[in-house]
């Protein structure tokens, strides 16, 4: 055997994978909302944090969440290969070996939890570990293939980032950070069920018991309206708790009304169009809601009667 043939044999595993395929394992699109809400929690929390440590906290939230995504792709590789939306992911495409993806995810997860603990604080690190563990063990392994309530309970994993960001500054879990957690927690079901309404065939083929597959579209539409009706007033809790002011109240109010209106449209229309519209809007909703929280804190923290800005008052 020639030297070239030998060296080719030793690099067969994952040989066709590019750097971008490893980045794809981290689910960058999901990561962007996680990073943003995590940053919002960090920015509005009372207290001070050195800008470098704040950047490290956001990095740890981002990579930590991405690592959990890689472990999720390892576990779900069988159903990912069936579903149209996921069949081009690196593992079902044969670009990355499953074991390699698992090692990649576990290593990154452990490393960035440790980094969060050593560089920022152990409350934030503990919450990051809890979020990762919840996503992998509770959502992915336990609930996803067993119950249509998978994304209701499992949605908690995606709701942790603002709480982690808050804890990075304050070092504690407070009522305010729980309020931010609850907003994302209640946002998750209508967001995913809107997607599941027009991807029901995909989920059914893969045997994932999403609500439209198990209970049918009618029940799902009613549940979407129900959760949207809870979400809209719940989004006002930052105002009630005093860490957001009138600007946020107005924006949250308008967004909440629009969310309910689109949910009602999903309920009344049987086609896919309304569900697609609600899914798209739900992403915008979360982005604008947390942008309002950040903008208000950045522009007029005193006016809003806020206790302090995590980054702005550093020094």
């Amino acid at each position: 055997m020639t030297d070239t043939a030998l060296s080719l044999n030793t690099i067969q595993v994952g040989a066709n994978a590019r750097v971008g395929d490893y980045l794809a394992l981290l689910k960058p699109r999901v990561m962007s909302l996680v990073v943003f809400t995590g940053f919002a929690g960090l920015f509005v929390a009372p207290g001070t944090l050195h800008p470098l440590l704040a950047a490290v906290a956001v990095l740890c939230i981002a990579i930590g969440a991405g690592a959990a995504g890689a472990i999720n792709m390892w576990y779900d590789r069988d159903i990912d290969a069936i579903m149209e939306r996921t069949r081009r992911r690196p593992i079902p495409s044969g670009l990355i070996e499953p074991a390699e993806a698992l090692a990649f995810g576990v290593t990154l997860s452990l490393f960035y939890v440790m980094l969060m603990g050593l560089a920022v604080n152990w409350t934030a690190a503990g919450l990051l570990a809890l979020a990762n563990g919840f996503y992998v063990f509770v959502y992915t392994i336990w609930l996803k293939r067993r119950t249509p309530q998978n994304i209701v309970i499992g949605g908690a994993a995606g709701a942790f980032p603002p709480m982690i960001g808050w804890a990075a500054v304050s070092g504690t879990v407070e009522l305010e950070s729980i309020a931010l957690f609850l907003i994302i927690f209640m946002w998750t079901p209508p967001h995913f069920w809107a997607l599941a309404l027009y991807r029901a065939g995909d989920y059914a083929a893969a045997g994932v018991p999403m609500l439209p597959v198990v209970a049918g579209p009618e029940v799902t539409r009613r549940q979407i309206v129900f959760y949207s009706a809870i979400l809209a007033p719940l989004a006002m809790t930052p105002v009630v708790l005093g860490f957001a002011g009138w600007l946020y109240a107005v924006i949250a109010g308008l967004l909440g009304l629009a969310f309910i209106a689109l949910a009602v449209q999903v309920w009344r229309e049987t086609g896919e169009r309304a569900a697609r519209r609600l899914f798209g809007f739900s992403i915008l909703y979360l982005f604008v809601l947390f942008s309002a929280l950040i903008a208000e804190q950045a522009l007029a923290p005193r006016f809003a009667g806020l206790p302090g800005t995590g980054l702005g008052l550093w020094g």
């Binding site: 080719l8 690099i11 994978a17 750097v19 470098l52 440590l53 490290v56 560089a119």
Partner: peptide, 26 residues
């Protein structure tokens, strides 16, 4: 295959270097 492997090696090198600098700054 070698070209892709080389790019991955560069990426790992850059990531490790970045972490060293980050931990030093922290």
């Amino acid at each position: 295959v070698h070209r892709k492997q080389r790019m991955k090696n560069y990426a790992v090198f850059a990531a490790l270097l970045g972490l060293i600098v980050l931990i030093y700054l922290i």
